[in-house]
């Protein structure tokens, strides 16, 4: 027997609702993408755009070790940032969930949310000051803990990761927090009633059931990190070249084909992330 199909009008309603979004997408995404693809199959030689079909730019991008390093660094920055955000964000979400007083909850929520309220440029310069060799953190390390030399915390990968983790934290905390609040509180009581202490209850009940939120947060963080531009350029000090920076440089050199190929590489990485995390998400859901 075949499952009955919903009447046409009912099943088509969602598509009508999606129409405005489709129109916006067509104009703001599909059209530019087509332009994008066109440029990516052109080449650029000695300051001139040659508009003939050729895969040379792709070939260059995929074989030149310089671009390999860029792709690798992009993935590295995104991975470390995601890992740090999750490691900081999950306990934070848990604390926000377990805090009893409503006032404390509000303040904690505001603090977690605050990075988004501050302009990215201001925030990046703030971090530059905080993390500098003469900044308060290094002062503390040298004066109080007796480090012989300042630790380089800025204008390298470390600075980029610290600042990105800071700004993407809310995007990790809130999906996790929302799965936690949707968790039936009697489940934890049931686990404890069956003899599980706090840790076992967390490991066998709370964590598996909040995993979808964690994956969603990690996915958002990873894709946002892939596309981050201002933070790597201000806090990387020219030493951390990620794909968005490469695209920007190529654009300012009016090397459109190279910029287009870099953009496409970025798009593919983002799409792979989404596909992979959707797989994991489906696996983790009950």
């Amino acid at each position: 027997m075949q499952p009955a199909r919903a009447p046409f009008r009912r099943s088509s309603a969602p598509w009508f609702l999606l129409l405005p979004a489709f129109l916006v997408m067509a104009y703001a995404f599909v059209l530019p993408m087509l332009v994008f693809f066109r440029y990516s199959v052109y080449t650029y030689e000695r300051g001139k755009l040659i508009d003939e079909f050729s895969l040379d730019t792709y070939r260059e991008f995929l074989t030149d070790p310089y671009f390999h390093t860029i792709i690798f660094d992009t993935l590295k920055v995104a991975s470390i940032t995601t890992l740090c955000s999750v490691l900081v964000g999950y306990p934070l979400a848990y604390a926000l969930w377990r805090v009893k007083s409503a006032a404390a909850k509000r303040w904690l929520g505001l603090i977690i949310f605050s990075p988004i309220l501050v302009s990215v440029v201001v925030r990046s310069y703030g971090w530059t000051v905080l993390l500098a060799d003469q900044g308060p953190i290094n002062w503390f390390l040298q004066m109080v803990l007796g480090f012989p030399e300042p630790i380089r915390l800025v204008f390298n990968l470390t600075g980029v990761v610290i600042s990105l983790t800071h700004v993407f934290l809310p995007f990790v905390v809130f999906p996790i927090y929302s799965t936690m609040t949707r968790l039936d509180p009697t489940l934890r009581e049931a686990a404890m009633d069956l003899g599980a202490g706090w840790w076992t209850t967390f490991r066998r009940v709370t964590f598996p059931l909040t995993l979808p939120g964690l994956l969603a947060g990690a996915q958002i963080c990873f894709t946002l990190s892939l596309g981050a531009f201002v933070t790597p350029s201000l806090l990387g000090g020219g030493r951390v070249i990620v794909l968005p920076l490469q695209v920007f440089t190529a654009t300012s050199d009016i090397n459109w084909p190279l910029a287009a190929v870099g953009g496409i590489a970025l798009l593919i990485l983002a799409m792979l992330t989404v596909i992979l995390s959707n797989r994991l998400l489906r696996f983790s859901e009950v």
Partner: peptide, 10 residues
């Protein structure tokens, strides 16, 4: 305990 809404681990 048997809980009111059973509280089975989903």
């Amino acid at each position: 305990m048997v809980f009111q809404r059973w509280a089975l681990f989903p």
